[in-house]
Design a protein around this nucleic acid. Structure first.
Lengths: 333, 333
DNA sequence: CTGAAAGCGCTAACAC
DNA sequence: GTGTTAGCGCTTTCAG
């Protein structure tokens, strides 16, 4: 492989007859050079296609303008929306973003954490995922989104949707529409977000004098429409009855809707359904889904603001942020 | 900020009473050390939470097990599916994947290219985007997916769906259902993939003795459901008629469907519609969409296989791969 | 305003 | 088996 030699700062120095120190100053615009020197260097840089070696620079300065972002599932629009926003905003401030898709696996997460630490990242955004595994956390400013670590990193802040109110709003909408036998479909893992949604949900039921039935709580091992379909179909076949269903994500609602249709149950006639997230598909499905909207823009904005703040050495303004959610009423209720 | 001192290989060396060279050998499992030495080092590594500095390592070895992946829009499921697959497969082979979301901007792409080059990546995957801007391409093995660069990088291969057949199949399906006034909705930029789809489409029309009407070609500046809705609504208001519509992506089809519904045109009664991609929403929309399915799994598999091959110094097996597509017949035709 | 030189953390010859 | 040493490309004192 005749891979042409890396052109380094030294190459530029030789070509211009300057020292590497001066070239470095020019490249980093540190000042302290004549206009002529500047132009000579720029010219050489152009001609030789010189790109500074980030490794060497990072090694020397002991930090890289790079932030890691850990996300469970990039295909999930809720997550990718946040990733996109965060990435855009950070790019504008000169940071690259290293996206780490863990595929919901704690093991992958650990591997990534080590990789990120090895890369000397200057900040970390961690979306959802398990609330534990906070061992060997890189010692950098961290923002958790939708995740409540048992022992948060030293310089960190937590941002989450108002999941409690979200659950409450969902249940309330169902109650207002006259539902009395309300079921719940969620993740079988007990993530903090899911817990909050469920608490809010049960709270509303209790207020209405209803006792939640254990048999009306369905759960899936992996949160997708296929599993939702199976879980709801199974419940239906087992003779469980319900006239309202709160699904902890829109994709779960989609699967549930299909199961309901398959069982010839009319929505919203016989069963009413509420989802969560408000991903685009919620409004384009066969029956547009009533859902609880999470404000991903605001969450991302906050995340970037707090993170950059911390990366610049300031403390975070608050250790915990709750972002409001809203009910989007469509046709499943 | 009392950021505790980086523990380095030297720290381990001191703690164990060995030399840095030996420690390095153990850490990289290069052989040439006793079992006892091995354990002594491992213990110290554990206790001190040592993580090798990837910058220093990369600097020294002049390469990092890191591949960049350039993608126009991570929210688009078609792209994120590929990203996910590629990332998973490469992780299994020990490579990290640096995801670069360009947001469809050539400028962002250039910036990322420089960043990637600066990071000494060992390979690059580039999905879609403009067919030009191949200046200053890092000198590394490259796989293009759905993109036909004017001047491909030296060690590179191109992987794409059989877009020509895809366009042909879409038109043929419409024709078979009796459509005679067939319209096309696509990207206003002339990407190679779009061009192929369009060529296949027109080919089929010609074979049926039909001349494509210029007025029945609609285009959008940004490929999303909103713009599709607007474009189709506008065409309808302008008095353009059609009984078949081929949309170059499923999301375009979704927007088109909404516009059709809004204009009280029945699908598939009065107008039949075919999409492209087969993203999940295509099967969950109000009317499940007939579409041309791209085999993202196969594309990703090929991409990773060819890329690793090239990164290991072998030549690519073929410079150009065409992956078959298939018609998924649903309810819009 | 510019240059010489040290050293970031690590690996790879080369000695022993 | 293990240690010594020389850089990888860059930034940053410190002199001049």
């Amino acid at each position: 492989m005749p891979r042409k030699d890396q052109v380094s700062i030294k190459t530029i120095a030789e070509k211009t007859g300057l020292s590497t120190a001066t070239v470095s100053r020019v490249i980093n615009k540190k000042g302290g050079f004549t206009r002529e020197t500047y132009e000579r260097v720029q010219k050489a840089v152009q001609e030789l296609d010189y790109v500074p070696n980030a490794m060497a620079r990072g090694l020397r300065t002991r930090s890289v303008p790079l932030v890691g972002i850990i996300v469970p599932d990039i295909i999930n629009e809720f997550f990718s929306r946040i990733v996109l926003r965060v990435q855009l905003a950070l790019a504008a401030r000169g940071y690259s973003v290293f996206i780490c898709n863990t595929d919901e696996s704690a093991e992958n997460e650990q591997t990534y954490l080590a990789t990120l630490q090895g890369m000397q990242i200057s900040g970390l955004v961690c979306i959802s995922g398990s609330d534990m595994t906070d061992e060997a956390w890189p010692n950098v400013p961290t923002v958790y989104i939708d995740r409540n670590p048992i022992r948060p990193a030293p310089r960190s802040t937590i941002i989450e949707s108002d999941n409690l109110s979200g659950g409450w709003m969902a249940a309330t909408e169902l109650l207002r529409r006259g539902c009395r036998e309300i079921a719940l479909l969620g993740d079988e893992r007990s993530l903090s977000t899911a817990l909050s949604r469920r608490n809010g949900f049960q709270h509303a039921l209790n207020d209405a004098g209803l006792v939640p039935e254990e048999s009306r709580i369905f759960s899936v091992a992996k949160v997708d429409e296929k599993n939702a379909y199976d879980a709801v179909s199974f419940a239906l076949r087992s003779g469980v009855t319900f006239d309202g269903l709160f699904c902890m994500t829109d994709w779960l609602a989609l699967g549930a809707l299909k199961a309901l249709e398959n069982a010839h149950l009319r929505v919203p006639g016989q069963v009413r359904v509420v989802g969560f997230d408000d991903v685009r598909v919620a409004s384009y499905s066969a029956l547009p889904i009533t859902t609880i909207r999470q404000d991903t823009d605001e969450m991302s904005r906050l995340a970037v603001e707090e993170l950059t703040r911390m990366m610049e050495g300031e403390p975070c303004r608050r250790p915990h942020w709750i972002v409001p959610v809203s009910l989007i009423r469509r046709e499943t209720t």
